[in-house]
Every structure is written in C-alpha cells, then in structure tokens.
Amino acid sequence: MAPVTIVEQSVGPPEPNAIRVLVTGFGPFWRYQVNPSWLAVKPLHNTILRVEPSTEPIVPSLHHAHNDHPMAMDDMEAVSQAPLVIHITTLQIPVAYHAVLSTVAGLHSRPPVLPEPEDPAFMIPTPPQNGYDFMFHIGVAGRGPLRIEKIGHKLGYRMKDAEGQYAPVVATPKEIQPEPTETERIELQRMYIGAGIIPVTDIGPPGPSGVLNGEHGDAPHPPVDVTEHQPNRGFGKGFENFADELPTEVDVARLIHSMKESGIESVYSSMDAGHYLCDFLFYGSLAEAKRVASKQEKDKARNTPPKTTPVLFMHCPPQGQPHHSEQVTHAIKHIIGWVCTRNTRP
C-alpha cells in the first residue's frame, strides 16, 4: 500500500475542480481557552493540497462530484495520473448540544449551509453546490494516542456540555440508562483531568454513573447526570429511523495501516467515541449524510448527482500529551489525502 504523498501545499480559494473537504474542530470548554482540536484544525483553513494519486481503485464521485456527466474510463486514467487538488475549509463548532443540532444538518445540505464564523480570518469560501466530498471532525480526549472512531451513538449522553446543558431527552424519565462501561469510565477520568475539572491528586474511584470522586467530593458542578432515574438523552425527533449505532464508511483499519507506514505510529481505532459532544457530532453527521444520500436516491428523476459524503471522527490528546498540535495537523493532512485518493467504502 503506497503512502500518501503531498507534493505541494498552499493557501487560497477553491479551484473549480478541487475535491472539497470540511474539517471541524471544537470551541473552548472548561479550562481550554483554545480547544486542542481547534489548534490542530485551524492552520488548514483555505489550504490547498496537491496529492499524488493512489494506485488503488479511485472513487469517481470524489473526482467528479460537482460534474453532472459520468466520467469515461479514459478520463479516469488521466485523472489518476495527475496530482489531486484538495481544498480544505475549517469550521469551529461550540461545545454545546444545541449548537451541534442546529449546525450538523446544514453541513450536509445541498448546497451546504455553514454558520458564519466569529473570526473574519476564518470566513467560509462558497460551499460546493453538491456538498463536501469528505467531512472530517476532530475533538479532544484524554492523554494518549490519536484515536480514530468507527461508530457514532444515538443515545446515552449523560454529561453536561460547556454551557451546563444536557442533551435532549428522548425517552421517559422512568427509563434508566445502563451503567457506563469501563471504557467510558476511563475516558471520563482522562477528560476530567485533562480539562482541569478534577485535580489529579483528588482522583478517587468512580462514583455513580462514572463520576470520579476525590478527597473533597465530586466536581463543583457534576458534569454527569447522577439522578436516580436518568432519562435517556441523545437524538430523538427526526432521527427515529436511524439505528442506535452508525458506522463510518471509511475503512479505518486500512487507514491506520497507511498512517503507521508513513511514520504516524501513535494511533489506534475505537468503537466507543465517548458519549459526549464528540460522539454527538459524529453520530449526527453520519445520520445527516445518510439522510441526504437517501433523498438523492429518491430524487433521481431530478438529475441530482448521487453522492454519499464519507464522514470520519478523530480524537486527539491535549497539547503535548503526547502529541503537539503540529503533529495532529500532519496526521489530519495524511488522513485527508488517504480518504480522497482511495475507495472509502469498507
């Protein structure tokens, strides 16, 4: 499997036939005045990558996603020999459930509708009429390797967001959610320590629903719903027809193999995105991609070019634990190049 080779990187507006990629990071929360995910994402705004094409099968829709005419075999051969032009747009999303819900559908609209950034340096170039070709979400987790998520979850969101709000209730209060898994408990501990909610010296064994107890009790404002009868929280109205778990279409195993071959060793895959804002955004984005693809299938008579946008989520650690933002940015570019030059279906 040949590694991804970026032959040129520049900054500028999208070229007419460029592959369009949207990369999101999160805004401030808890002690993070600048979210580590945004530190890694923001240098890529309006970046143009020229990437050597893969020797593996190419997905025609990624190269002619904005062209109403199918690509002939001769055209495919010509495309495979020329460097691929990839344009990256970045977007910061607040660490709030309502912000995700009000934003995620627009990201997948045809054409996409993105919120206006507060910082004029990150103004959004005109989105592609037929949607982005790849959507990549980045969020921060605890100390450790990069973690590429395979599955987004519909329900089970017990933690408050950065605004102190819970995810929407989607079941009766009498319905009690299961206790968190050991993986969730460990991830909660890493997140609380990394964000400064609980000092390392105060950490004791997990309490109810995974809340970590310390010598001086729980965090001042417990970020987890610890009521006796916890309501089910997550995606409700409008998402009834979607499964409780949605997988990414990206072949994560092959992607990680490529990353390790290129020298990005500290990375692994995960089946548990954490049941917090990262997981919430990932599931919402996967669901909206499926919703749009289904609608396009029904609207074939309107000559709308059908396309399913690949969606992926990666967790990065806090700055320097162990990766620095520049290393995470490098990994993001590698992943974008890999997805855009290969067949993303498993």
Rank of each mutant, 00 (worst) to 15 (best):
P223C: 12
T344L: 04
P16D: 12
G238V: 00
E245A: 00
A273E: 01
C278Q: 10
K42S: 13
K298I: 00
G144W: 04
L101C: 10
K290Q: 15
D202N: 14
A171Y: 07
V104S: 11
A78H: 10
K174G: 04
L22N: 12
R50T: 08
Y268W: 05
S10G: 05
G27W: 03
T126S: 03
G214P: 01
S10C: 04
I176Q: 14
L155T: 07
K307N: 12
G27C: 03
P305K: 14
W338N: 05
L101I: 14
S61Y: 08
T55N: 09
P178W: 03
R254M: 08
A141C: 01
D299I: 01
R345A: 03
E15A: 02
L312F: 13
I256W: 01
P173H: 12
P125N: 09
K300V: 09
P178A: 11
A253K: 12
F26D: 05
P346I: 11
A121F: 08
M191T: 08
H275M: 03
V328R: 05
T227S: 05
V7P: 00
I148Q: 02
Q81Y: 03
M159W: 03
A287V: 10
L312H: 10
D218W: 10
A293E: 13
H275D: 02
S102R: 11
L255N: 03
R254I: 05
S294W: 02
P247V: 06
K174L: 04
A96S: 14
M314R: 04
L44C: 11
A99G: 04
P306D: 11
L286S: 11
L281A: 15
P115F: 13
H216A: 10
D74R: 13
H66Y: 05
N232I: 12
M271C: 05
S325R: 07
E182I: 00
F122D: 08
